[in-house]
Structure formats: C-alpha cells, structure tokens
Design a protein around this nucleic acid. Structure first.
Lengths: 60, 60
DNA sequence: CCTGAATAAAAATTCAAA
DNA sequence: TTTGAATTTTTATTCAGG
C-alpha cells in the first residue's frame, strides 16, 4: 500500500544514509515491501524528498 | 573562471526557473560563459544546490 | 488510481589533458 | 587544480496492465 510504503521511506531515510533510489528499494525489501525504482521515484516526488549535494548526496 | 561561473549560476537560478544542468549551461552561454554539463554537475555539488521535487523540479 | 518493465532523460564520474 | 568528452549511474517518464 502506497501510504505505508511512503511512511516507511521517510522512516528509512531518517535512520540510514541513503543515496540512491535503488538503495531505498533494497531497504524496503528488507522490510518486506516490494517496490521498483520507478515507484520510488514517484514517491520521492510526492514526498518532496531531495538529494542533498556535497560529499554524500543523501536523501532528506 | 570557476568562481565567477559559480556566482553566475547562483544568480541565474535566483532569477529563472531552471530544471536541468543543460538549461543552466544554456543560460551561462547566453552570458558568454562556456561550461559543459560535467562542470555544472561539479559546481552544483560545490554550491550545494538541490533539485526541489514536486511538479517542476527546480534548482535551488 | 497505482505499479512494474522498459526506455528516455538527466546527473555524476572517469579519464585524459591543459 | 580545473575542465570537456565520453561513459556510467541514477532518476523520471512512458506505456501497458492490474
């Protein structure tokens, strides 16, 4: 379900250093949520996530 | 020169809606500053620019 | 309306080279 | 140390389909 996946995404990036949507997909999978990069791209947009620049390029 | 190009980048994005590094390259060229996407990518990192998400995806 | 697979588009990086 | 050209990687979008 979309809402819970997006909530989980926010949870993940608040706890871990995530630099790509693929990494996010992997973390979701560990939590038994299956989502492709395409879906995460759409989620990122809806959640207004941004990739910080500078050394690491993490999602926030 | 790097410093003035980066200053110009900040100036451009404060005035115009810029969504891609190619657009930025074009705007620079209009101002007689030649820089490829690769260079702008590096500048973006140094300047800590971010792409906002949501409808437009502008640089800030 | 939501999603995945495939693809396109954009951004980051590598590899000379100045 | 900075850059461009080429390439790789990442992200956005298109195009079905559920």
């Amino acid at each position: 379900m979309k809402i819970s996946r997006q909530a989980m995404i926010l949870d993940i990036i608040s706890e871990k250093d995530i630099a790509t949507q693929e990494e996010l997909s992997e973390e979701l999978r560990k939590r038994n949520i299956k989502a492709t990069q395409a879906t995460i791209s759409r989620d990122s947009k809806e959640l207004h996530l941004i990739k910080t620049q500078g050394e690491n390029g993490l999602y926030r």
